[in-house]
């Protein structure tokens, strides 16, 4: 059992939880994730480690309430417990001093995984740009926190309600065109955003890493549900990733495989909605 030390609502559909998990906090590194299971009948939900505090012994996760399991998770409060909390899984991001500046693109809930990577890159001495994008102002969170760990923060929204009115690839192109070598780019967010970031970066020859949130079950390399195609090879996102060289990812496979269970997910959501309407 793992205790929820603190629960916050960040945006109308995004929640944050600080979990008491000292052993995982001790080992956690930027780029890694956990898998949690709320209780006996629940799915195993993979979530990126958004923050960790080795002294307090805590791990922070941020999740978007997209389906039945994440909505149920959102109903938990500070002081409640989570049955299973496994990690840190996956390979950490490669943190080092890159020649030139680094650019991190965070889309939507991708702000969460980008934060610890930005912080570590800054600590390693890099000049760090963060481009943060969302559909509208109310979906943006952790602006102050992010500001504190990067050199320059560029905000944009689809509707212009906060920052620039554009998609993230626009400021990304501008940065890449500027006469300063780009050491490395990260793009973390919806698959379609990552795909377009890779397209944007391609002509500039800058290395780009993306974080693939495939559907997962065990997270230890035992089921192959998370398989993706990188450089023509089958790779397992849970043990070989979740970060991969974005220029080599087969996006058709990534985008298609995310929809594997859409029919069942909808069914579960309908049952959940019915039950919850009758409660209220």
């Amino acid at each position: 059992m793992f205790k929820i030390i603190e629960k916050q609502s960040l945006t109308p559909n995004t929640d944050l939880m600080i979990i008491d998990a000292p052993e995982i906090a001790r080992k956690a590194a930027p780029g890694q994730f956990v898998i949690l299971r709320k209780d006996e009948t629940c799915e195993r939900i993979p979530l990126t480690i958004a923050d960790f505090d080795r002294e307090q012994g805590t791990v922070t996760v941020i999740f978007q309430k997209v389906g039945k399991s994440t909505r149920e998770l959102g109903e938990l409060k500070s002081g409640d417990v989570i049955r299973n909390f496994v990690g840190p899984l996956g390979k950490p991001s490669t943190i080092k001093m890159y020649g030139g500046r680094v650019i991190l693109v965070a889309g939507g809930v991708g702000i969460a995984p980008v934060y610890p990577i930005a912080r570590a890159l800054k600590d390693a001495g890099n000049y760090v740009y963060v481009i943060m994008g969302a559909r509208s102002a109310d979906l943006i969170f952790w602006e102050d926190k992010m500001n504190a760990v990067c050199d320059e923060l560029i905000l944009c929204t689809d509707d212009g309600s906060r920052g620039r009115k554009c998609v993230v690839t626009e400021p990304l192109t501008e940065l890449l065109e500027a006469p300063w070598i780009t050491g490395h780019v990260w793009a973390i967010g919806p698959a379609i955003m990552m795909k377009f970031c890779c397209k944007t970066v391609e002509p500039f020859d800058a290395p780009i890493d993306v974080s693939l949130d495939s559907i997962m079950v065990d997270g230890t390399g035992m089921c192959g549900a998370c398989r993706v195609e990188v450089d023509g090879q089958m790779r397992f996102a849970c043990v070989d990733g979740p970060e991969f060289d974005g220029s080599k990812v087969n996006w058709d496979v990534v985008l298609a495989r995310k929809k594997v269970f859409s029919q069942e997910e909808q069914e579960a959501m309908q049952v959940w909605n019915r039950e919850h309407q009758s409660e209220h």
Partner: peptide
Amino acid sequence: NAIGVYSANEFLTRINLMKGFRFPEYDTP
């Protein structure tokens, strides 16, 4: 990598460990 192709391990894990045969009472599809 098509939708509808499983490894036996994934298929069996969903059914046995995650009790997928009791979906939607158990959440794993």
